[in-house]
Design a protein around this nucleic acid. Sequence first.
DNA 1: GTCCATGTTCTTTA
DNA 2: CTAAAGAACATGGA
Length: 298
Amino acid sequence: MPELPEVQTVVQTLSRHVGGMWIARVHCHRRDIITPAGADLASLLTGRRIQLVSRRGKRIIVRLDTGQWFWIHLGMTGRLTAEPADAPLRPHTHLCLDLVGGPDGTNLDISTPISAVACQVRFCDPRRFGGIFIPTPGQTPDDGMGPEPLEMTADQLAQCMSRTSRPIKSALLDQSIIAGLGNIYADEALFAARIHPLTSACKITPEPIARLCESIQKILRNAITAGGSTLRDFLDADGHRGRFQDLHKVYGHAADPCPTCTKPIRRIVLAGRSTHFCPGCQIQPRRTNARKIRRKST
DNA sequence: GTCCATGTTCTTTA
DNA sequence: CTAAAGAACATGGA
């Protein structure tokens, strides 16, 4: 569900509700969504003020007034919403935070009346691939993360890609190489840049790399403007669906005519994921596998 | 019943 | 060592 544009949309919509608010109470309905297992999230959060909600790759970073921070990952079906505390709970809601406003930290214990609760932040995730992550000492939000696609230069992208011979699609999905792309936007960006998904990442020349850099950034920006893509589950913090799914050119369009050349869009499986491309616009790289077939001695 | 799903991580295989 | 393929996680929709 969530790639960079969806996560960014959640961060933007959530920030309006929670920036500067105090966490009065923590309701955790499932302990196993928290990593490391057994961490005491309630005592970490209760009575603390939310200073900033931001994004790194697909992670939602929350900073508290104490300097402590943690992150939320939405996995495939995770939702982070801001709702009235008396709104009905969706099934699979695993965590709720009661937030109170105001310039001071009054009423920050269990005696806070429900009427003082400005809103509840809720984490709902049916498949539970997402979760709440508390960093280990010394860990930073950048650990294990490649560059931010919206801030990288074409040279940086070339550098990232020069270090692996894997298919470009596979490299784009690797968060330690570049942070934020997922299956939808990797396919859309490769189509826009006219690069075949099986092309070896280190064999792409500077010109197509520059095209890819521009395509990635243009698509991500447009998707953020459209509030992300809602295929099934995604909602922003206000419960609104995204609109970018209507602008997908190849993702989910197997067998449809290519919007550019009318050849049917193909779907293959690469790195275990559905991969969509136009065989007319995205030319297949020359086969690099050995011609000789080696026979094992028997 | 089958297949598929916006993600990540671990294991197996080559 | 590299990396590709497969499985696992858990739930629901078509």
